[in-house]
Design a protein around this nucleic acid. Structure first.
Lengths: 243, 243
DNA sequence: CGTTAACTTGATAGCATTCAACTAGCGTGG
DNA sequence: CCACGCTAGTTGAATGCTATCAAGTTAACG
């Protein structure tokens, strides 16, 4: 079975580390509960104490946090294969929320079963620990992005990351990738106002670097986009750095 | 032995989780190499592949990353008990550097010995995994800080975090804490220019919220500072949330 | 079609950066 | 001993990037 319900997760793990066959098999024995989530629905709230971890199967969701004045900051985007609340295994209270951008299909894996597997299987433990560290590496890059980059560069950098991560797990179609993100999502992710984000996007389009519609991102000039974006995929720690 | 060389680390772990006695004893059997580092020295470079993890014993160091135009972003500050490059156990290549602010005393623990202990001791493994997730939680808050907060709030928030983390491991002296940070460090941490950081600090001083000299941070009005800073210590996941 | 959400555009205000100069403290060497 | 250089901190003025406010357009949908 080259494509069962666990394929997104195993693909993701294999893209970022070596995934032994028996580790994949052990994962596939975990109990789970699959679930469909409508666009915009909040999946986990800040303050919740989840009893299971989520694996994204299809679609995109994001972590977010509110700051004073009711402003929102998006902390990360997650695609098929990602474990967006793996940390809840050890940090019992959510310090942020989880919400669906577009429609999402996901599975929930109970903490206790996952914990048992982690404690008994060295390979899986290392794979998942590494995955949680990768998460942190991405946050670090986002700190740089919001802290020290100009608007246009910030936006370009974010889109580069999204595209490379999607390509790594085989979700892209040539230079195109289907994204369910609005400009409001993007502005809350890079820390800009909606209006200014819109103008930054227009600048990227004007420079013929990319195309972004309501449903699809297309890279028009990868080398130049990467350079404008100050993007270096090193922080993603991919197993096969690039193509 | 209430105070041996491992005290900083055990204190830190106990401040953020429960630390069983035999876990503490097992840690104390790890091999190590103690080392003194002069202020400003780079301890680990971006691109390095370290063979050991660092435990801070005394002083303060920080992670940093360069972005285009030679601008620097500081990613985190680390005090006694912290493990600022624990991730190097699983992410082999450093995606950022490690540098001493002030003089630092630290110890290096070889990867192989640490990995053996992690693989054989469940408590320690959970403690350290949790610590690495805590790291990520702090990065998330920094994304919010640089992304969605005004200058004065940003600075106040950073100082709140530094103070609370220092207090949690017993490094503060009443409302005072000895910090070896220059205003340049602070500005690179919050993503502001040196000049504007200086003015933001002056505003905090003018409001009688805190005092900050070359060597010491003193909190003058904690409740009001916390509120100005939009600071909620929840994201630090402390075992005993506050005092 | 009326309604709504997403996107776009223009004008204005304001916060943060940049440039430049100046002060203070500290160590070194003539 | 004082000049000198260096680092860190401070201040002023001008520029400019980004936010805000307001209005208008487009597309999707019941």
């Amino acid at each position: 079975m080259t494509s069962d319900i666990w394929t997104p997760l195993t693909k993701k793990l294999a893209a970022y580390s070596e995934l032994p066959d028996d580790a994949a098999r052990a994962i596939a024995e975990l109990p789970y509960h699959a679930k469909d989530i409508a666009a915009g629905e909040v999946i986990v709230h800040e303050g919740d104490r989840p009893q299971s971890c989520i694996v994204v199967l299809k679609g995109m969701l994001f972590r977010h946090k509110m700051v004073a004045d009711g402003k929102r900051q998006i902390l990360s985007f997650h695609i098929a294969g990602d474990l967006p609340d793996l940390q809840s295994l050890f940090l019992k209270t959510m310090d942020h929320g989880l919400q669906a951008a577009g429609d999402v299909r996901l599975m929930q894996v109970p903490h206790d079963a996952l914990m048992r597997l982690i404690d008994s299987n060295l390979d899986i433990r290392h794979l998942l620990w590494r995955d949680s560290l990768l998460d942190a590496a991405i946050f670090r890059e986002w700190v740089c992005n919001t802290g020290r980059r100009r608007a246009v560069v910030r936006v370009a950098h974010l889109l580069c990351e999204i595209f490379v991560r999607a390509r790594a797990v085989g979700l892209t179609d040539g230079a195109a990738y289907s994204v369910p993100l609005t400009q409001t999502h993007l502005s809350d992710a890079v820390g800009l106002s909606m209006v200014h984000l819109n103008r930054s996007l227009q600048e990227l389009r004007r420079q013929q670097l990319l195309q972004l519609t309501k449903t699809e991102l297309t890279i028009l000039d990868w080398p130049r986009l990467q350079s404008v974006a100050d993007f270096d995929a090193g922080y993603l720690h991919l197993r096969h750095p690039v193509g």
